[in-house]
Each structure stands twice: as C-alpha cells, then as structure tokens.
Design a protein around this nucleic acid. Structure first.
Length: 490
RNA sequence: GUCCCCAUCGUCUAGCCUGGUCAGGACACCGCCCUUUCACGGCGGCAACACGGGUUCGAAUCCCGUUGGGGACGCCA
C-alpha cells in the first residue's frame, strides 16, 4: 500500500476563514490518523487577487491551530510551465482544443441558454474546428484552450463522505485549461499538481463536489492515477449562506478567534465537531483523541450552521465554541494557560515582568482564581484589572447598589474594617473570613451587606470570586486603601 | 433555468447501513438547589424525526414523490 498523501490548498485571496480552517483540520486529522503526509500548497494562480501578505496570514493561522504540515508550502504559481505543458499534451492528443470565442460572446450564450431554460453547460462551436486549421489560426489569433469533454458518458466515483456519486458528461461544460494569455486555470493546475505531488486523497469543501468529475476526466486524459475524493459539508452563516470573508466579515476570519482569546485546542475541538462526530456522547476531545477517533467516512452529509452574532456582546460567536473555550480555560494545566494570558495583559498594559519573577506565585494564584469566570483569554484582562493594577473602574451599578445604597449602614465601618485588616494573621482566607464576620457582628452589620460593600470597594464590581480570596489577592495594604477610598464615595 | 448534494430539538449532533429504544447528548434558554455576589457544580423543564405516498406485523431508519435548503454551471479558486 502506497503512502497516503493529502493536501490543503488555500488560495491567498483573503484571510484564512473558519471554513478553510476546518478543511485544513480535517486533512490534518486524516493524515495524522493514517500516518500520511500533509502537504500545504498555496494556489496563487489568480495573480491579481493573491498577495504575499495573505500567504503569511494563512501560515500564521495554521500554526496557531497547531496544524503542522509535512511538505510545502508549495506555490502553484511557480509551476505554470509544467501546467502549460500538460495543456499542450492534451492539445496534441486532441483531448483539448483551441477556442477563439470572446468572453463576451460566451457570456451572452450562457445567459441565453439559462433564459431559454436550457443547461448552462454550453458547448463552444470551436470544438468542431479542424485541429490543423485551428493551430494555424492560433499563430496569429489569441485563443483559450478548452478541455474536450467526452459526450454521453457517466463519470462515477466513490466519495469517502458522499459515497457513490455520478455525473453525466453532457452536463459538464468544456472548461478552460489555458486562458488566452497562456496562463493555466484552476482545474488544470489542481490536477497537474495533485498528480505531481502524488496526492492520494483530495479532501475539500463540498463546493468542489461538482468539480470532481471534471478533474477525474482530466486526470484520465493525462494518464494520471485518480485520487480518492472526500467532500466536506459546508459551513453556513446564520442566514444559511456559504461562509465568506467578504460578506460576513472578520467574525469568520480565523485570526479574529485568536485575537479575541480562544485557546487553540478548544477551537480545534469545536471545529472538529462541526460536521463530524465520533459517535455517542463524546464532545470534549483532546488533539490526541481527535486523531485517534477521526474517521472521514463518519462525516455528516448536511451543511452545518456556524452561529455568530457580532452585535451580541455575550454570544458574539457560536455559543458552543465559547462554552468549550471556557471549559478549556477552567481546566487546562495552569502552566499552559499562563503564557497564553500574557499577550492579552500586555495589550491592556497590565503586564509586569514581576509576574514571571518575584510575584510569580501570586500571579499564578490570581489567574487560577479568575479562570473559572473567564470565557476567553481577553476576559483575564478585563476582569483581572482590579487585581493586577491599581487603577480600575468603579462600576455605577456596584457603587449604587452596594455602597451608596447601603450608606446608612456602612458609613464609617469601611474605614474601621480597613484598620482591622492590620490585625489579621495569617493573611489567608481562612483567617480573614472569621475576622470579617466577627467585625460585622460587633458592628451589628449584616455580613452580606459588608461582603458586598467590600467587593465593590476592592474590585469596583458586584460580581467575582469569594470576597475572602479577593482580600488575599488584593493584599492587606491595597485592600485597606481601597476600603478607605470607598468610604469617601458614600 | 440546468445539474449535483442535503433534510432529527433554536444550534451542533447520536441513532439510519444491519427497521422494533420513553428518539439520547451537548450548547443556548427557563426554573430549583448550592453560594449572603457572580461563576462553577447538581437537579429539573422547554424543545426535533419537513410533508405525502408506498414496502412491512412494525418506518427516524428502506423506496418514490413533494416541499425546503445549499452548492455548481467563470478565460475566479
């Protein structure tokens, strides 16, 4: 049995989006599961729309997800001579022909065919031109090279996902192989490169399903071994349209998920479950488990909706993705989490080198305390501010409800509590709690009122971890200072 | 318009191949418990086999049709 080789072949005409990332992931999983080779090929034959910058983004995205490739990146644009050579071979064997029609004329013919309720797969008149005559004309006239699609045949193939699939060749147009400027088109390049790179399994989006018969025909005409195809159901936007960077914007771009604080493993886990399931109830799956359980033939046949709602503060992207990310944040090894949090703190100007030096133990404890309440890495910067820095916002809600609203009861008591903090030993939750409770009792204060007021004073909010843990993390002096400051707001 | 593909809770899905289960799970949502906050956790609730015909003792499961959705039909990839 020869080696299994798959490829991910994005075109660098835009950012890597979530759908493309999933295609890459499924190729990667398939290769890793079967001990195959994962090839990365950049399909940059559309020179006008491709850019080097986009190539960089695509590589960054794959690296972020941890989808390491074994070969490449190869650039299709560097192989145009080989592709052209294929077209000429086809021309020589009469499996392709020269077409002298103008693009305008063809467009008009196609529109008319559709208007007359006929097939859109129009055949060009140049198909029946005498090859020798066409060759002579070609010396002085621009022409495109078209594939001579056989007539009256059925192309059948077994798709790993869609199983038995077939298409009548009469429904396939004579697609272009070489443009009139001599540049190869997608179909030709893909087929030539897949053969050259000895690709055994073509795993890609279902939007390519109707391209498979054309490519099979081309492979046969070229005398290549035909690869096995596996088409993946599409990822749809909430409005059920195919996901596209252009219409759906940055929220479908992979880099957006990195920037908004997703853990790569969590996002990979989520992506894997979009269109595939190992069967049963298992959902939280590590990368190793994914590789172990992955089975392309178990991929769903129907398209999956990727839910996002940018206007929605809480569920700006698929709630299930967020839930999974929160689960990873809460339970992943702290040592892996810490370095992921750092860039988000840096971006918010909350990072201090001491966090990795003299304050390392304290920092670990702080992040560990916060993680249960964070849904993205960005939340650490947002919720962590009162713990990590001295300037933080006093939320109006907290101020009104737990400080000013309770002014009669707590006036003078906050400052008194601040004094009391100095006497607590050791400075741990187990000692702070009884001391604070005793203080409340002595002052005829409801403990809840005092705790809520303290939370507002120390963190500026009315939500967060146990107030006694908060005291520990904020620290004796800072806590006292904040209590006194809050006293002045009453 | 032509061709191709698809169809289980709001969403992701298990079950379908090899008909017989209260159609299972997760997320979301709602309630209760835990907690004098929030979150986590626990318990419970809401919620689906698109429709119509067959085949069969019996259909989510097999067949046909309808409807709905998606994709392709480019000298884009």
């Amino acid at each position: 049995m020869s080696e299994i080789r798959v490829r991910f072949a994005p075109s660098p005409t835009g950012y890597l989006h979530v759908g493309g990332a999933r295609t890459a992931l499924f190729n990667w999983l398939f290769a890793r599961k079967r001990g195959g080779v994962f090839v990365l090929r950049i399909e940059d034959t559309d020179r006008e729309r491709s850019s080097e910058e986009m190539v960089g983004y695509i590589l960054d995205g794959l690296r972020w997800l941890g989808l390491d490739w074994d070969e490449g990146p190869y650039f299709q644009g560097e192989r145009v001579e080989a592709h052209r050579e294929c077209a000429h071979r086809l021309l020589d064997s009469n499996r392709a022909y020269r077409c002298f029609c103008s693009v305008e004329k063809l467009d008009a013919a196609r529109r008319q065919a559709i208007a007359e309720k006929r097939s859109g797969a129009v055949r060009c008149a140049c198909r029946s031109l005498d090859p020798e005559e066409a060759k002579r004309r070609g010396a002085s006239e621009p022409f495109a090279v078209r594939f001579r699609t056989p007539e009256g045949e059925t192309v059948a193939f077994d798709d790993i996902v869609y199983k038995a699939t077939s298409k009548e060749t009469n429904d396939i147009e004579d697609f272009v192989l070489l443009r009139s400027d001599g540049s190869p088109t997608y179909h030709l390049s893909v087929v030539a490169d897949d053969a050259e790179m000895r690709i055994t399994h073509v795993i890609r989006g279902q939007d390519h399903l109707s391209n498979a018969p054309k490519q099979i025909l081309l492979h046969r005409a070229l005398g290549n071994p035909v690869p096995v195809f596996g088409h993946l159901p599409l990822l749809l936007a909430p409005n059920k349209a195919k996901l596209s960077k252009r219409t759906h914007g940055e929220v479908v771009s992979l880099s957006f998920y990195r920037d908004r604080g997703f853990v790569p493993d969590a996002f990979v886990n989520f992506l894997a479950l979009l269109g595939w399931s190992p069967g049963g109830d298992r959902e939280r799956l590590s990368r190793a488990e994914l590789v172990e359980l992955f089975d392309l033939s178990r991929v769903n046949l129907s398209n999956a909706v990727f839910n996002f709602a940018l206007g929605d503060e809480r569920n700006w992207t698929d709630p299930k993705a967020i839930a999974l990310n929160a689960e990873y944040l809460a339970s992943m090894p702290l040592d892996e989490l810490l370095p992921m949090v750092r860039p988000f703190l840096e971006r918010a100007s909350l990072w201090r080198d001491e966090f990795e030096g003299t304050w390392a133990a304290w920092f670990r404890r702080t992040i560990d305390l916060l993680r249960e309440r964070c849904r993205t890495l960005a939340d650490f910067a947002e919720r962590g501010r009162p713990y990590l820095a001295d300037e933080f916002e006093m939320e109006e809600k907290a101020l009104e409800k737990n400080l000013r609203g309770k002014a009669e009861e707590i006036r003078g008591r906050l400052a008194a509590l601040a004094d009391r903090l100095a006497t607590i030993e050791p400075w741990e939750a187990a000692a702070i709690e009884p001391a604070v409770r005793a203080f409340a009792e002595e002052n005829a204060l409801k403990i809840g009122t005092l705790m809520n007021a303290a939370r507002a004073a120390l963190t500026g909010t009315n939500v967060g971890p146990s107030i006694f843990e908060v005291f520990v993390i904020v620290g004796r002096e800072r806590a006292a200072a904040r209590l006194r400051a809050a006293e002045k707001l009453l």
